[in-house]
Simulated assay, not measured.
Amino acid sequence: MPDIAKDYFEALERLKRGKPVNVPKGTKISNDSVSLEAGRKRGTIKRSRPIFSELIEAIDAAAKAGAKPRDGMRERLDEAKAEAARYRVLWEEALAREVSLVKQLWDEREAWAKERAALTGGKVTSIRRTGRE
């Protein structure tokens, strides 16, 4: 049985180094991925088997250590995306205000034209001088 544990520990080390042989690169470290990397079937590492207790502890520790903290560039990208989204919302709100003001101006001009037509009767001739006299 120690040879079996040795195979699993070697598989775990390959996964830690990021140089797996039997599973794709970047595979998350877990009991199943170590089993597959060791050339065994999924589910062969079980907590109920005492021979795997040290291996399971090592896998858990490696999984916690392997959980990478958020990448600085990824964090900056997320912040930039959030800021872009915020500015897009502000831009859309400004456009909505502009459209509202244009419509209000249009309505006021139509109302003024109707009022002017009502005041002048629509049949008034201008009495301005043309300056040619």
Rank of each mutant, 00 (worst) to 15 (best):
M1W: 01
M1Q: 08
P2H: 14
D3Y: 06
I4W: 10
I4V: 15
A5T: 12
A5M: 15
K6A: 07
D7K: 15
D7Q: 14
Y8E: 08
A11I: 11
L12P: 07
L12K: 06
R17C: 02
K19P: 01
P20Q: 08
P20W: 04
N22Y: 01
N22H: 14
P24R: 06
K28A: 13
N31E: 03
N31R: 12
S33D: 01
S33G: 02
S35F: 03
S35Y: 03
G39A: 09
R40N: 02
R42A: 08
I45F: 08
I45S: 10
K46P: 03
R47N: 06
S48F: 08
I51W: 11
I51C: 06
I51Q: 09
S53D: 14
E54P: 09
E57W: 01
A58C: 12
A61G: 05
A63I: 11
K64C: 10
K64V: 14
K64A: 13
A67T: 12
A67P: 00
A67Q: 07
K68V: 05
P69R: 14
E75V: 07
R76A: 15
R76M: 15
K81V: 14
A82Q: 08
A82I: 10
E83G: 06
A84H: 12
A84E: 15
A85P: 00
R86Q: 05
R86E: 13
Y87M: 05
R88M: 13
R88C: 05
V89A: 15
L90T: 01
E92V: 03
L95T: 06
A96F: 00
R97Q: 04
R97E: 01
E98G: 02
E98V: 12
V99Q: 05
L105W: 00
L105A: 13
A111N: 01
A113F: 00
K114L: 08
L119H: 02
L119R: 11
G121C: 07
G121S: 02
G121H: 02
G122M: 00
K123T: 15
K123S: 15
V124M: 09
V124C: 02
T125F: 12
S126E: 11
I127H: 05
I127Y: 02
R128V: 04
R129P: 02
R129Y: 09
G131M: 08
R132M: 11
E133N: 05
